[in-house]
């Protein structure tokens, strides 16, 4: 599914990722844990193709394609989804119309007709209720004036609507209260399947108590220093990163 080999990345001339390598197989859930400022988000943004992140060297193979050659929209259409740590506001663009448009872009890519308005509303109601999102949130502008929790739920909703096969969640748990964390995690767990992989980037153990990872990686100074199973996360929670 995803094979990262010796990836070196810099941001504004500061090297952040150093020889990062990671393999993610189909259906696997990988957690990447690390202290603040260790460059965890850089992995997420690099994989999603944010042009502010400069590739120095390395290869990334995604479903037998050269990921680094694709632009952000091609990556999305090929099935890569990034749930943003800080979702971006789009003033003037209503959430419902935005969601419908991104759904249709993916349908078009698959050679399908645009979704009927009625069908979309049904779909939106169904998916929103799983996440306890009130429908009136969709008549507001995308992320504008949303609370931290609403923004994160809106990210998971987009993930649910777009059916990606690789999901990168960048600190999705930050800004969520316990109830929101539960409903969001439940929604994510529902989305786990044998052909969908997850990379979950987090600072804390608590998200991993709800979404159980197959692998845990400790990330420090731009690369993975230790890998293991879920018990590694528990140990870090007790002993810290040092």
């Amino acid at each position: 599914m995803l094979d990262i080999k010796n990836l070196n990345v810099s941001v504004e001339d500061n090297q952040i990722l150093r020889d990062l390598s990671l393999k993610v197989g189909s259906g696997e859930v990988h957690a990447i844990m690390g202290p603040n400022g260790s460059g965890k988000s850089t992995i997420a943004h690099t994989l999603a193709g944010n042009p502010n992140y400069e590739i120095i060297s390395g290869d990334v193979n995604f479903n037998d394609k050269d990921l680094l050659k694709m632009d952000p929209s091609e990556r999305s259409l090929s099935g890569l989804f990034l749930a943003f740590q800080y979702p971006i506001e789009l003033p003037g663009v209503t959430n419902a119309s935005y969601l419908k448009q991104i759904v249709n872009v993916h349908r078009k890519h698959r050679g399908e007709n645009p979704i009927e308005a009625g069908d979309f509303l049904k779909l939106l109601k169904e998916k929103s209720s799983c996440l306890n999102i009130p429908m009136d949130m969709h008549s507001r502008f995308v992320n504008a004036g949303f609370s931290g929790g609403e923004k994160k739920k809106n990210e998971v909703l987009q993930l649910d609507l777009l059916n990606p096969n690789l999901v990168i969640m960048d600190e999705t748990d930050s800004g969520l209260d316990v109830d929101a964390l539960k409903s969001t995690s439940e929604a994510v767990n529902q989305l786990r399947s044998s052909n969908r992989s997850f990379i979950i980037i987090t600072h804390y153990l608590r998200l991993l108590e709800y979404i159980e990872p197959d692998f845990v990686h400790v990330f420090q100074d731009g690369s993975i220093i230790e890998s293991g199973d879920k018990s590694l996360a528990n140990r870090i929670d007790k002993e810290g990163y040092a």
Binding site: G49, L77, L90, L162
Partner: peptide, 20 residues
């Protein structure tokens, strides 16, 4: 970048924002 990450081309992303 946010809108492109959802699959839209740069042009369409800009159109979405401008039309909003």
């Amino acid at each position: 970048f946010y809108v492109m990450q959802r699959g839209m081309t740069a042009e369409d992303a800009q159109g979405l924002i401008v039309n909003g």
